[in-house]
Write a protein that binds this DNA or RNA. Sequence first.
DNA 1: AATGAATGAGAATTCATTCAT
DNA 2: TATGAATGAATTCTCATTCAT
Lengths: 210, 210, 210, 210
Amino acid sequence: MMKAVPKRLETGKKRPKNTKQKILVAGRRIFAEKGYSHTRIQDLLKAAGVSPGAFYNYFSNKEELFLELVREAGEALRESVQKIRVQGIKVGNQDELFLVLIDSIRYFFEFVDQNRAGLLILFREQQTSNPIIMDTLNLIISEIHRDLKKDIHTGIDMGMIAVADPGIAAWGVLSAISGVTLAYLNNPKIERDKLIQTLSELILLGLFRR
Amino acid sequence: MMKAVPKRLETGKKRPKNTKQKILVAGRRIFAEKGYSHTRIQDLLKAAGVSPGAFYNYFSNKEELFLELVREAGEALRESVQKIRVQGIKVGNQDELFLVLIDSIRYFFEFVDQNRAGLLILFREQQTSNPIIMDTLNLIISEIHRDLKKDIHTGIDMGMIAVADPGIAAWGVLSAISGVTLAYLNNPKIERDKLIQTLSELILLGLFRR
Amino acid sequence: MMKAVPKRLETGKKRPKNTKQKILVAGRRIFAEKGYSHTRIQDLLKAAGVSPGAFYNYFSNKEELFLELVREAGEALRESVQKIRVQGIKVGNQDELFLVLIDSIRYFFEFVDQNRAGLLILFREQQTSNPIIMDTLNLIISEIHRDLKKDIHTGIDMGMIAVADPGIAAWGVLSAISGVTLAYLNNPKIERDKLIQTLSELILLGLFRR
Amino acid sequence: MMKAVPKRLETGKKRPKNTKQKILVAGRRIFAEKGYSHTRIQDLLKAAGVSPGAFYNYFSNKEELFLELVREAGEALRESVQKIRVQGIKVGNQDELFLVLIDSIRYFFEFVDQNRAGLLILFREQQTSNPIIMDTLNLIISEIHRDLKKDIHTGIDMGMIAVADPGIAAWGVLSAISGVTLAYLNNPKIERDKLIQTLSELILLGLFRR
DNA sequence: AATGAATGAGAATTCATTCAT
DNA sequence: TATGAATGAATTCTCATTCAT
């Protein structure tokens, strides 16, 4: 049975370039909007203006594209977090640490603004059922968690920080940051400066007034 | 003359249970395990020992069952949080508040242990794309958020709490709690007492040692 | 994303029974006509008057249906060949053997007439590239070949048969029979009695006149 | 003054070979390995080191390439068979015919060894559903069959051969030869001399010892 | 003539939902 | 009410073929 000759209804249309880029750009946007499992390949193709065949030239399936975006976003996130740590590590007392944390969070939210789609992809899929995606996400998150836990340990050794369990505290801090970030991403009207101030105080001082 | 042996020897066997209950019980478990979109109705029906036809006597579709479970879990969560608030509202100074908070969180984690499946359903779908589910979840979360925000305001008025933005602080606290809860649900080896202690300190005192 | 409610354009249509039988019957016919790889599931569905879902209730894919038909046809073939052997084994001299062979071949072609579709399925796929199908077919063929080789050995021991290599001779005889059978299946005008006579003579006496 | 070094140092390198030849060579190999429908043009092009565009300069589609290879193989086969006939036709008695047949079959299997790929292409597709391919194959086979039938008639007229139906006998002989050839192609360990001896005896003398 | 990215019809399979019994 | 076989729209992915360069 011969395959029918593809009909080229829109002959003359320009052959587009940078197909892979187009797919990645569209993927970031659509996955951020709809999440992994609600995104149909067709949606991606339409958004990227690309044919199924072209898509499968670059990615062997939806998961592969998604993982590429997850890794990319995860790497960016971790890099951004690393830069913050590098600054944080040098301080000598609580007052300085406070100022540095505020600066770091400010810096972080600049990054958030630059990477809305990527971060939404990361945050949306925290509870997906696809084990490969889960593994990739867990790797990213657990690296960040490990770093933060180490920092908390350092803070304890330096006499600046006191917590019952640094691992749990690290989860709490990370969750607070990511939760607030998600709220911010979903509601861009939130005032950034207040957010930064509040988050820093919350993390370092808690709710209590002294 | 012997009395006839009663025919229904299997009387002890569980009666044909309420079909709807069977569906709800199975639904809680399976949705918590796999999430909404990875749960196939067939699996659920198999787990419930119920036929498709019977299912559609009680729920007009998959979404409806899910929403019922979400609402149920959300209500339970909110109730549980309410009870904590009722206790918290009475305290007069920070020391008492601290003790009450520890108690409340302990209480909350008892609830968590009793409602693993329901809470996993809530947490898993935080970023689903189904608008109805999203709305339902958002309603639940935003009510809890609103309550917490109000409490923070009260704390501020009483001179016990100081934060730049109560709304953002409420998000931070909620996120920290739900993030740590999720970590706890996914890793039951986490020591509950340390978790409660750490979380309370983090929320009220932050990371800084005084 | 909810699945759309299937539209039942032909409501009122009778719900058909014996779906598996219908699929098997249609499969035999279509596979015999078109061969495995040119048969599209859709063709099968249409021929069987069955929906995709119903098909996948009984077979997990096209290959599974095909293998069931292959095994069925192979078993029937081998049984038929076995019956012929049982008769052939008892004869004491060449004249008797000749008569028995004619009888057996006659019997075989009655079987052929009863199992046209099944045999076409077997013969068509002798060179497929699907390894599972290949294995199944090879098993069937090699069992028949082994039996025939054994019979030739017996004939040699009894002093009735003389060949340089029983294995190769068995291939030659089998190929002659199956080739002529295929020609017969594709061209039912061939006169059966002449066919039986010619084939028997060819196998036992060769072309030479004595 | 030095003579300028000629620029094309790589002249020894094989010249940009005739693209069509490359395609034909690769096609023979790949089609023989995988059969028509399991051969993807891409694989073939890769094997040939040729681009899709170049391919379609020489063949208007996959089928056309295949048919060219089928015809080529068919022609070679028929030629080879013709040569055998030319020799066979001259003999005067059965003993001579026997020797000539052995020689011819030996010659044929030398041809088989030289044309494995082509013959596999022919034999693999004996039952394809593509009507054009079928027609081409049938034409080749039926010409050979016709020739053989004619020869059998001649043998009958000369009093050397006796069969009930020359057409059927020709099918039987052809099938035996092609079946054994296929077995030989798929299992090169088969001893050629025994094969030739066995096949010749089978065809001329049948299984019976005299 | 050659290149190779792009095209898109087509094929297999899934699963929420229906409905005759 | 319950059953479960049947339905069919929807989805992913393939690969022969095209065409701008």
